[in-house]
Amino acid sequence: MSGPSGSSWFRLNRNLHRDVGYLVCVLTVLYAISGIAVNHIHDWNPNYSIQTRAVALGPLDIADLDLTEARVVSALELEREQVRGRHLVSATQFKVFLDEGGEVAVDPATGQGTLTLVSKRPGLFQANALHLNRLKGVWTWVADLYALLLLYLAVGGIFMLKGKTGLLGRGKWLVAAGALVPVVFLVWS
């Protein structure tokens, strides 16, 4: 591409690339952070912070589960508003459910068990909801449009410069190197 029309095409591409870049930068940062977080899901929980500790309440009478629940709540000094309900899972496990998915799980015979408190990881929970498309519905279309814009940034980006630093210069080697990384992993996996 040369002459005035060629230059104008390059200028248009550069300007568009710049403005689309501004437009998608926040979402790209969110998706990147969420991507790293979710990649390591085997090692940690990217959505919730879960704290578990052992509790010893002493033997609990399960003849009246309302009273059993009240005893657990009082022994652990829990806020009444935190409590969602309770359930005798089995003869050896009684649970009191707390906000956000927390719980107390104890063996009524011994009163030994665990207290689990749960809270959402601020920011990351919301970023994961967007990235993993938990919102569904219209967000799916927004995410598709975002993906198209990223596609443009990738393809448009390689045609932004001319000369030695352009695609026909060192650019082609860097594009090939970038393409080689997934190919090597796919072949060797």
Binding site: L135, K136, G137, V138, W139, L145
Partner: peptide
């Protein structure tokens, strides 16, 4: 984008 952002939750109850 702005148009898409006006989420109509009636399209998807989970929203």
């Amino acid at each position: 984008l702005a148009g898409c952002g006006e989420t109509d939750s009636s399209l998807n109850p989970s929203l």
